[in-house]
Amino acid sequence: MRSFAEYLRLYVIIEKQYIKARMQYRADFIISSIGMFFSSLATLGVFWVILNSVPSLAGWSLMEMVFIYAFYMIAISPMQILFDHAWQIRFHVQQGSFLKYYFRPLNMMFYYMSEMFDLKGLTQLVVGIALLIYASIQLNLGWTPIRLLLLLMTLFSAALVQISIIVAASCAAFWVLDSYPVLGLAWKLREFSPYPMTIFDGAFRVAFTYVIPIGFVAFYPSQLFLRPEEVSPLIYFSPVIGIGLFALTYWIWTRGVNSYTGTGS
């Protein structure tokens, strides 16, 4: 068993090489970053257009929505940057090239995911951080060390929830080969996470809170900083939810990896 520090060192070495290789296509990096910039702001644009016609979205002002959206952008960045290779599992599984990941003395999920480091995702992270700072200033949010610690903790949990949903969906490839439709659905759900969960009721509210908990990616944790008096006590369990979901996803991944039999050629 290798130590965490050893894995970290390996990761840095692998990504250094990867980034060097990617930088051969500099124009592609620039165009992709521009694409990422626009695509990550699309839903915020929709909120802006809506809030031109009505004073608030279920009681949330435009600036509060900017805060929630910024939280969302930061929370989904680790998934985008570190786990982007999840989208390719279906190709590797179909073409048999997935077999190579079995033959290294490394954790398979680590080895597989380390093969890609999504540079354009950094755009999203930077824009998210900038928007979060901007909204905090506009809303006069007082940041104490404890609140900053809470922010980091909730961001960490939110990132784990998002990573788990996408990686679990991509694992469908081990059983049905083409996981694109499942991933597409998971990706679509992701886009609903900055919505105020209070607009939903019935099955949707339950599903987004307990079944596929996208509410924990942005809205519930943001409440903690914007309106602490309205917060549901559930939010203090968010690290448990994040770590629990990731453990579940890891279990699905292990089962998938163990059941894969290759293409036979």
């Binding site: 296509y25 124009a27 592609d28 620039i30 165009i31 992709s32 970053s33 521009i34 694409g35 990422m36 626009f38 695509s39 699309a42 644009g45 929709v46 257009v49 809506i50 031109n52 016609s53 354009k120």
Partner: peptide, 27 residues
């Protein structure tokens, strides 16, 4: 160009937001 991700994504966002696919243009 080698990769089409950036162009395609940018196109898709511009088309969906400014076409009414996400939100009525009246808004």
């Amino acid at each position: 160009s080698e990769s089409v991700w950036g162009l395609s994504t940018t196109k898709e966002i511009i088309v969906t937001v400014f076409s009414g696919a996400l939100i009525p243009l009246q808004f």
